[in-house]
Design a protein around this nucleic acid. Sequence first.
DNA 1: CAGAATGAAAA
DNA 2: TTTTCATTCTG
Length: 883
Amino acid sequence: MKGSNRNKDHSADGEGAGKRPKRKCLQWHPLLAKKLLDFSEEEEEEDEEEDIDKVQLLGADGLEQDVGETDDESPEQRARRPMNAFLLFCKRHRSLVRQEHPRLDNRGATKILADWWAVLDPKEKQKYTDMAKEYKDAFMKANPGYKWCPTTNKPVKSPTPTVNPRKKLWAFPSESSRDLPSPKKAKTEEMPQLNFGMADPTQMGGLSMLLLAGEHALGTSEISSSTSHPDASSKQCQASALFQFAEISSNTSQLGGAEPVKRYGKSALFQLAEMCLASEGVKMEESKLMKAKESDGGRIKDLEKGKEQREIKMEKTDEARSQKEAEFEKSAKENVRDSKELRNFEELRMDDTMDIKMEDPKEIKKEELEEDQKCSHFPDFSYSASSKIIISDVPSRKDHMCHPHGIMIIEDPTALNKPEKLKKKKKKNKMDRHGNDKSTPKKTCKKRQSSESDIESVIYTIEAVAKGDWGIEKLGETPRKKVRTSSSGKGSILDAKPPKKKVKSREKKMSKEKSSDTTKESRPPDFINISASKNISGEVPEGIKAEPLTPTEDALPPSLSGQAKPEESDCHRKIETCGSRKSERSCKGALYKTLVSEGMLTSLRANVDRGKRSSGKGNSSDHEGCWNEESWTFNQSGTSGSKKFKKTKPKEDSLLGSAKLDEEFEKKFNSLPQYSPVTFDRKCVPVPRKKKKTGNMASEPTKTSKGSGDKWSNKQLFLDAIHPTEAIFSEDKNTTEPAHKVKNALSIPNTPEPTTTQEPLVGSQKRKARKTKITHLVRTADGRVSPAGGTLDDKPKEQLQRSLPKVTESGCSDDCSHNTEAAETRSSTPEMPAVSAFFSLAALAEVAAMENVHRGQRSTPLTHDGQPKEMPQAPVLISCADQ
DNA sequence: CAGAATGAAAA
DNA sequence: TTTTCATTCTG
């Protein structure tokens, strides 16, 4: 295989089959080829230990080769040049844009993104810029010889390689490749793809998740630092993660020794293992009840276990400790298995467990870990763990929003410090199945036990729904957090993830979703990711077809219950809910419906719209999707549950160098703040949170109106009404930046923008000019295409900008800071509005129900509560609007 | 496959 | 300065 492939590649690269090979830009490393080979082998073998060995080997060899090649052979360097800040931004937000404007084509989306980018606060931009830089640096380290592409020389297009595969570095190729590499790939790119492949699915999922988690932490790092509690250095460490990888890879390459790499990997794995163990341990203790649940479906577990075990093994090799843990795990696992009874819950449980895990183990072991892992900080670990878990569950989601926010949310240092539990949103998928199973009174009973939890789950769901599209979780979360804090104690929270995105998980596997929570003792900040919008492809159809919910409803509840853990977040809420347990169910149903009908549907729709097209690819994607996300759940319906697992398996090792880099990148990427459209809209106005409303409102709408405006505009309005400032804050929070930073950011923007855009013109002035002229067509929700004249667009922007400046003038910086503080306070304060935001479940349910009823109308729910439910409502509204 | 956007880098 | 190319995906 490889040989042939390689040859082909060469030919392609060198000769340039049809056109010229573009070798120049892409640097592909021989490594890739090797990896491929190795990879293939590995796959076949797949034995744990063997894999490891191979990995090492691979790493060493591959690296070395790389080096050599890079130097001379460069021709083949395949790596793609690192993305710049803007691209990162696009990548991160494109999906959002799409959600907003389903009809909009990519180009249009790009334009919008550009607009957003333009409006983006400097500080935020800076983040992306930093990230880009960091990545670039890491990349360069990893690929010393890398050349950016000689501009003129090459004709450019390398035939094959470029085109299709483009494999996304980090995103590995979708699945297909692995077993059956697409023909094209096979030819030229195969190799690279393979590499990717290696990295990807499985590994990516696991490791990447871990890494991501770490990154999250990074993202949050600031916060953490602020809290300072954990490790001041944590941030740095995290930040350096990429570099580390790069270094490692480079070292390895040079040295040829894979050890470092291994270690690194190990550390990650190790951490995971530890976490698992710990979690298990905790579980054992804590949840006797849980056990039953844990038992999960043997299969999944088994699979996972297998993974874990493997990981564990890996660790063992390196260190003895791991062994212990492993044993622990085993025992735990066994227990779990025993209790297969409840498969449904299992998944949920898993999540919970994960959360729990974090706690103790960390404390105990953390020191060790820390030493071992430079990067590992508590937070990181926790995150990583969570992420990992998530990964298993939902690998590919696109939801971006969640994590960052989630992290951000965690204001409390303590939480950070200690192990947080993670909640996972688990998937309701299982639930669905269960639903099928039906009822299962037993389940119910169990659920009942954790009625509260159920409620919580519901809440989460709601939140998720609310967040839905854009994931502005922050708002919701914040309050939640507080609550949780108060509850302190237990808490493992689960997030309910609504739907997943069908989508092309293939590419993005990264799921942003990871929700991390920290239940932990004091407060678990739970955050939910909600990507409400995303549904699995499988589901989508159903959802769409039948809004009916019935089926879904059933399913949902269980899931919720499973997930739900009692205390958690809002006591009051629970209480309230508890008060009327009966209604809980109904509420849930309503919620579920709402979710489905609204958020989910919306997302579904969007996905469907897009997804269809990708049908061809889609297949492959589906796979991924399955295994990634909630594969199991959905899978069932779908199909290839087993496969996914397989993929998942463990090849973590193999990747190493480049793979790691990619992973790291992914993590970081995920950690990047994602801004809700609202934000942008706001931003336009925004900065000035305070005043902004008025002025903003006007301005915003214009902008939004362009596309699918109604929805957004409504949302915005709604949000504004509720808590204007928060949205913005949320962003900031997401960012995790400390307040002071925020200030800066705000301040900065203020000054500059005022006049217009003149300053920036940059090199690409031309383009801009062009841009002005260009009008992008935006399709409205209706499907009509409305020409948004460039002029129009521009105008709005200008307006927005103008408005901004004004605000700024007013002295935003101070205000901003205050605001932030205020916001925080709110969150912290129990009674604060934020909290209230969470209004009772019943209210939500009602709303949901009402909405469903009206569906068509979307009157504002405000009436209901009167209270703040901001988040939920807003989303709901939005969703309605969408339809 | 072109192309929309921005930015970094190479020429 | 100009040209490539990075990402994403519709048309």
